[in-house]
C-alpha cells in the first residue's frame, strides 16, 4: 500500500508578534533572524496519521509512506523531519519552477508530480496550512484525481482495500467507510505528532529524498490546466492598538465590584 502525504513548509506559526513582519512588496511573510521554518502543524499530524497506519498494518514493510512537498530548497530539512517521524521517502518539487501562487496551481502541480512518481492508495493532507489558513489544497487534490474526499479526520484505519474515518463536525462526528483510493484531510483533533527518536533521525539520513526537476514534469504539465486563478494584491499586518482598561482592587471582591460597574456602564449586559 502506498500512502502519500502532502506537506508544506511555513514560518513557525507561534512566532511572537514583534518577530512577525510582512514584506509589502513581495506580499509574503518575512523570515526574521531567530524565526524557524517548520512543517505546518496540521501536515505534521497527517504524517503522524500515515505512520500510525503503517505501524498498524498487518505487513508494515509493504506500506510505503511518501512525502510530497512544493517548496524552496530549504524545505529539505522539513522533509527530513518527516522522514525522521517514520515516512519512507520524500519528494521535493521546486516552487520556483512553476507559477504556484494559489491553491489551484499548488494542487494541480502536486497531483501531476504524484502521478508522475507513484500510484497511491491513500493521500493524506493537513486540514489547512498554518500560514494562509485557506484549507482547500487537500480537497482540490481529491477533485483533480476524481477520488472520494473525506475531510477533518480525527481517527482513521485501513483494512484491505478500504479506509474507515471518524470525521469531526461542529456538534460531534460521523464514522464513514470508503473503498480506496481516497483523499483524507486530517483535523487537529487527531492528536499530537510524535517527536522523532534519535534512532529514527539517524535512519532518515539514508532514506531517499528526491528533488524533482522541472523537465521531469514539464510534459505532463503542458497538457494540464494548472495556472493560478487569483492573485494576492495586498498583504499587511494591521497594527494592534492597546485600549485595554485594567481593573484593580485590594481584594477579589473589590476587583469584581469594579469590573461589574464598568461592564454595566457599557450596557452590553
Amino acid at each position: 500500500m502506498i500512502i502519500v502525504v502532502c506537506v508544506k513548509q511555513i514560518m513557525d506559526p507561534e512566532v511572537p508578534p514583534p518577530l512577525f513582519r510582512i514584506d509589502l512588496e513581495k506580499k509574503q511573510a518575512v523570515k526574521m533572524s531567530g524565526v524557524e521554518m517548520v512543517m505546518s502543524p496540521f501536515d505534521e499530524q497527517a504524517v503522524e496519521a500515515a505512520v500510525q497506519l503503517k505501524e498498524a498494518h498487518e505487513t508494515p514493510e509493504e506500506v510505503s509512506v511518501i512525502l510530497f512537498s512544493l517548496g524552496t530548497p530549504d524545505a529539505k530539512d522539513m522533509l527530513k523531519h518527516g522522514l525522521s517521524m517514520g515516512a519512507d521517502q520524500a519528494v521535493l518539487i521546486s516552487s520556483a519552477d512553476f507559477d504556484v501562487s494559489d491553491s489551484f496551481s499548488t494542487a494541480a502541480v502536486l497531483v501531476t508530480a504524484i502521478k508522475n512518481q507513484c500510484r497511491p492508495d491513500l493521500i493524506l493532507t493537513g486540514r489547512q496550512a498554518a500560514d494562509f489558513d485557506i484549507g482547500v489544497v487537500g480537497i482540490g487534490i481529491g477533485e483533480l484525481f476524481n477520488w472520494p474526499i473525506i475531510s477533518w479526520a480525527k481517527a482513521l484505519s485501513t483494512k484491505s482495500g478500504s479506509v474507515t474515518v471518524e470525521r469531526v463536525l461542529s456538534d460531534g462526528s460521523d464514522i464513514v467507510e470508503c473503498d480506496l483510493p481516497v483523499v483524507v484531510s486530517i483535523a487537529n483533533e487527531f492528536g499530537a505528532p510524535r517527536k522523532p527518536s534519535l534512532r529514527e533521525t539517524m535512519k532518515s539520513a539514508r532514506k531517499p529524498l528526491t528533488e524533482l526537476k522541472k523537465e521531469t514534469l514539464h510534459q505532463d504539465l503542458s497538457a494540464t490546466d494548472y495556472l493560478p486563478k487569483q492573485a494576492t494584491v495586498d498583504l499587511f499586518a494591521p497594527e494592534r492598538i492597546n485600549n485595554c482598561q485594567m481593573i484593580e482592587g485590594v481584594s477579589p471582591s473589590e476587583i469584581a465590584a469594579n469590573l461589574v460597574l464598568e461592564i454595566k456602564a457599557t450596557k452590553l449586559i
Binding site: N243, C244, M246, I247
Partner: peptide, 23 residues
C-alpha cells in the same frame, strides 16, 4: 490584554466566584 476591553491580572479561581457573587 492588547485585544481586551477590560483586563484583570489575577487568579481566576478567586476572581470568578467573586464575579458570580457580584452579578
Amino acid at each position: 490584554f492588547s485585544e481586551a476591553r477590560f483586563g484583570i491580572v489575577g487568579e481566576f479561581s478567586e476572581l470568578i466566584p467573586a464575579l458570580v457573587e457580584e452579578f
